[in-house]
Write a protein that binds this DNA or RNA. Sequence first.
DNA 1: AACTAATGGTTCGTATACTAACTAAATTAT
DNA 2: ATAATTTAGTTAGTATACGAACCATTAGTT
Lengths: 161, 161
Amino acid sequence: MQKYEELLVSLRKVTRAIGLYSKKLSKESGLTSPQLIVLKEIDQHKGCMVKDIAQSINLSSATVTSILDRLEARSYVIRERSLTDKRRVGLHLTELGKTVVKDAPRPLQAHFIDRFEKLEEWEQTQLVSTMQRIASMMDAENLDAAPLLEVGALQDMTTPE
Amino acid sequence: MQKYEELLVSLRKVTRAIGLYSKKLSKESGLTSPQLIVLKEIDQHKGCMVKDIAQSINLSSATVTSILDRLEARSYVIRERSLTDKRRVGLHLTELGKTVVKDAPRPLQAHFIDRFEKLEEWEQTQLVSTMQRIASMMDAENLDAAPLLEVGALQDMTTPE
DNA sequence: AACTAATGGTTCGTATACTAACTAAATTAT
DNA sequence: ATAATTTAGTTAGTATACGAACCATTAGTT
């Protein structure tokens, strides 16, 4: 087997583990990982737009819209059309949404996080930088299409309307 | 941002890059990455079963079934129920399927593979083993549920019926 | 002022990807 | 021999996830 295939396989295992955990989480807490992550983003950046969320967590707007549909249907989130710019949609948590996000488990295997945090500092750094290196080796062609916004890098957009 | 969040973000970027490439590939060659990977597995292990494919590339049987549906609809693959054990379904490529898989591009960004292969041997090894380490840190709980079969680890199952 | 471009979001269509429930067949146990 | 279990695969239902096409609105040009 080619080395790059081995890399692919383990990558696939990781994404699968994440997906399986999302399903498990969904059964226990009623929320999938993407739903939880979106909720957290809204919580941290009250009033932010759909596009902000999409960029900060590396999803397309279309995907975020469909996740928001479900979150809104369950009354965790409110969409509020801006008055000054009617294209924009401000996102807010309901009281229920705030409770849910507060009580929600962490968005990845607790096991993984625990283990990760038990590693030496330099080992953690090494894992992260290797992962980032692989990422950069893969998407360099599309870098311009995907602005390098990171989770948590959004400005607070409280009441921009 | 927590270190483990950084790791998550770059992981997300990688899986996204893979997904985007799959879409691009699909437009150019008419095949998505999972379809191509399944075709290659069948090509390398003629007559293998659905379950073998599922295990070797870390997908559920249900997912493989739906991918096979599309491949069969396009006459790339033939399902052949075993006579000795009628539960089993042997998978084979059609002539068309063989041609397609022969002409198909590699199942990941050519750019990535090129770059990867330009790295020093030890660097490649390091990337792979880091990825494997992350994988094992994530799915250890489910290890028993997911046998560690790897791509290419299947025996040749030519005409087992 | 009027036409053009760009932006933000949604909708549509398609493909993954999973579990759970199911059918059918083969094994094992009683 | 017959019942219970296991195995292989499919089907149904749901949730991502994407691009492309589409509104409505805003910004920019002329």
